[in-house]
Simulated scan of single mutants.
Amino acid sequence: MASEAGITQETALGRPMDSLGGIALGRPNRPEDVAELIASLVSDRASSIVGAEHVIDGGTHLPSDPPTTHRTVMPEQQPRTTAPQTLPATITRYLKAHRAHDTATAVTAFTDDATVTDDGRTYQGTSAIERWLSRSASEFTYTIDLTGAQQIDATHYIATHHLEGNFPGGSVDLRYQFTLRDTLIETLVIEV
């Protein structure tokens, strides 16, 4: 391609970087540039890291510059174990309705623009959440027991459940991670 354009290979390789405004490091990242960070993050030394975002862009963004993309991460506070009966009323109302397969009551615990992420799929808004609740209530027969609760801060809670039923695997422990807004559930992420 470079010879067709009448330029050197080095010049051709530099054009994508020039079109992006350059990279402060002067080259794309190499695996060894991030290997130490990755090794640290997967080690026991990082066991207290609950959420963090690492921008690896060759120095394009200075620490004072916000990244051009943003993703929500959980606060970096450690969860505190709490008694399940001390969970906020909205979460308790949702969990009780969910156990009883009472979709109409369960959906009232969510904000209009709430999101639920379950089994790798995200459901946005109360209509989508209601369809998800109806499907999950009828797809399998299972029992669900609240086995633990944690509070991260005033708006972030985790409720751990043990499920047994006729779904693949037969039993699983799931973490229901709640974010509240104005006393309603804004986000629910369900993970193993």
Rank of each mutant, 00 (worst) to 15 (best):
D112T: 00
G120C: 06
T105S: 11
V116N: 00
I152Y: 07
T141W: 03
G120Q: 06
D119W: 02
T105P: 09
T122Y: 13
T115M: 11
Q124L: 03
I144S: 07
L133E: 05
S134N: 14
A97T: 04
D145W: 06
A137W: 10
S134V: 11
G148C: 11
I144V: 13
T115C: 12
D153L: 08
D118F: 01
H98G: 11
S138H: 15
R121M: 09
S136W: 12
D113W: 12
T108Y: 05
E139M: 15
H98L: 05
A149Q: 00
H101S: 04
D112P: 05
R131C: 13
Q151E: 15
G120A: 01
T122W: 01
F140S: 14
G148I: 11
T111Q: 11
I144W: 03
A97S: 06
A97N: 04
T122R: 06
D113H: 10
S138E: 15
T115L: 09
Q150D: 12
L146G: 12
L133F: 02
V116M: 02
F110Q: 04
F140E: 12
L133C: 06
S136Y: 05
T111G: 09
R131V: 15
E130F: 03
D119S: 10
S136V: 13
F110Y: 06
G125V: 01
K96G: 02
A109K: 06
D102T: 11
T141S: 09
E130C: 03
A97W: 10
V107K: 00
K96Q: 11
F140G: 14
D102I: 10
D118W: 08
H98F: 07
S134E: 13
W132P: 01
A137N: 13
R121F: 12
Y142W: 15
T141H: 10
S138G: 12
D112H: 00
G125W: 08
I129E: 10
L146R: 14
A97D: 09
W132G: 11
E130R: 10
Y123H: 14
A128M: 01
A104T: 12
H101M: 04
Q124D: 13
Q151L: 07
R131K: 15
D119F: 10
A114C: 08
R121P: 04
K96R: 10
S138L: 14
F110H: 07
D119T: 09
Q150T: 15
D145R: 03
D113C: 05
A128D: 03
G125M: 08
W132D: 02
G120H: 01
D118C: 07
T115E: 06
T126N: 04
T108H: 02
T108D: 02
A100C: 10
T115V: 12
D153W: 13
D112N: 07
Y142V: 11
L133Q: 08
Y123K: 03
A100D: 02
V107L: 09
L146P: 00
K96C: 00
R135K: 15
D145T: 13
F110D: 09
A109M: 03
E130W: 02
I152R: 09
T147G: 00
G148P: 03
F140T: 13
Q124N: 15
Q124K: 14
E130T: 15
I144Y: 01
S136R: 00
T117V: 00
R131G: 15
D112V: 07
F140R: 14
T143K: 01
A109V: 01
Q151W: 12
D102N: 09
T147P: 07
Y142L: 05
